[in-house]
Simulated assay, not measured.
Amino acid sequence: MYHIKINNMQFHSHIGVFQAEKDLGQRIEIDLKVAIMTPYQGDELTDTVSYADFYEVIAQLIAKSRANLVETIAHEIIQAIHALDPDRIGSVAVKVRKIAVPIEGIFDHVEIEMEG
């Protein structure tokens, strides 16, 4: 087993409870960690799962999502990544960060982490 990680993917999203988040959108960042259950077999893309496919799936989900909660998009990402190759993909962990949230306070970002 080994892991494929993609860190700090950045997207413009329309995810949020507040109408301004849905209308104007905001930047989010996503980290992904995918356990590949088959051992290293060779130097061909067919011997693994493509991280380019992971990125494309996530980008498409973010582009169309109007979810209220980042937990919803994290769950959808986990399901979609598993669906790419259920025989090879084990656990999927995702972190979703909202960089600018419409609440008063001083902080860098808010983040949720989910694994499935």
Rank of each mutant, 00 (worst) to 15 (best):
G16D: 04
G16A: 02
F18Y: 12
F18L: 09
Q19G: 05
Q19L: 12
Q19H: 14
A20V: 15
A20I: 15
A20E: 15
A20K: 15
E21H: 05
E21N: 08
K22L: 01
K22G: 00
D23K: 13
D23G: 08
D23M: 08
G25A: 00
Q26I: 00
R27G: 06
R27S: 10
R27K: 14
R27F: 06
R27I: 09
I28S: 01
I28A: 02
E29N: 13
E29Y: 13
I30W: 05
I30Y: 00
I30P: 03
D31A: 04
D31V: 06
L32N: 10
L32T: 10
L32F: 03
L32D: 13
K33Y: 10
K33M: 13
V34P: 14
A35S: 15
A35K: 15
A35N: 13
A35R: 15
T38C: 10
P39Q: 05
P39H: 01
Y40Q: 12
Y40A: 14
Q41G: 11
Q41Y: 09
G42N: 08
G42C: 08
G42E: 10
D43H: 11
E44F: 11
E44G: 10
E44T: 11
E44A: 11
L45N: 13
L45Y: 10
T46V: 12
T46D: 14
T48N: 05
V49A: 01
S50I: 07
S50L: 04
S50W: 00
Y51E: 04
A52D: 12
D53Y: 06
D53V: 03
F54S: 03
F54R: 01
Y55W: 04
E56K: 14
E56N: 15
E56G: 12
A59R: 13
A59H: 09
A59W: 06
Q60N: 15
Q60I: 05
Q60T: 13
Q60E: 08
Q60P: 12
L61D: 01
L61S: 00
I62E: 01
A63T: 08
A63Q: 07
A63F: 02
K64V: 10
S65M: 04
S65L: 06
A67W: 00
A67N: 12
A67I: 02
N68P: 14
L69A: 03
L69Q: 07
V70Q: 09
V70A: 07
E71S: 04
T72L: 03
